[in-house]
């Protein structure tokens, strides 16, 4: 009877450990944890070209993660990409004239938005638009331009 009891306790531990592992995978490893911090505020930035940017790509300032891309759509009038950014609530003092650029982490790494702060006294609020943007650098275009200019120079 006693060994039956300890077997049952071990089974309980095993099931708990398995569920805990799933929970860790959900919260720590995957982006499911992100959905819980939607308390931040959203701003919009329009880019000419977003390259390989995706929803949930990181948004950083001075290399520190301050938010994530929540959605991407095409503006039907200007044909620009309209990127909605979710900024974490603790970063509520980002100047109005901040600019946004799309960079690549490493040579072939993933793409992310980097914010460079301006000097304005007014801070970005929910629903504001970032006007100063710099499109993604598309590797093929750069190589193409380089080849073109070298050919011209000859």
């Amino acid at each position: 009877m006693n060994s039956k009891r300890s077997a049952e306790i071990l089974v309980g531990l095993f099931v708990a450990a398995g569920i805990a592992a799933l929970f860790v995978l959900a919260m720590k490893v995957s982006n499911l944890g992100d959905f819980t911090d939607d308390k931040g505020y959203e701003v919009v930035a329009n880019f000419q070209n977003i390259g390989g940017l995706k929803p949930r790509s990181p948004v950083t300032m001075a290399g520190v993660r301050v938010g994530r891309v929540s959605s991407i759509s095409l503006d039907p009038d200007t044909y620009d990409a309209k990127v909605t950014i979710n900024i974490y609530p603790q970063y509520d003092n980002i100047p109005m004239d901040t600019s946004a650029s799309i960079f690549t982490a490493g040579l072939l790494g993933e793409q992310y938005i980097s914010l460079s702060p301006g000097a304005d006294d007014f801070f970005l609020q929910d629903g504001d638009i970032i006007d100063l943007t710099q499109p993604a650098v598309v590797l093929e275009q750069v190589i193409g331009q380089f080849l073109y200019s070298t050919a011209e120079g000859e």
Binding site: V29, S30, N31, G33, R56, S57, P58, E110
Partner: peptide, 8 residues
């Protein structure tokens, strides 16, 4: 990076 690229 792991969180950004691993989807639930």
């Amino acid at each position: 990076q792991m969180q950004a690229k691993t989807d639930w």
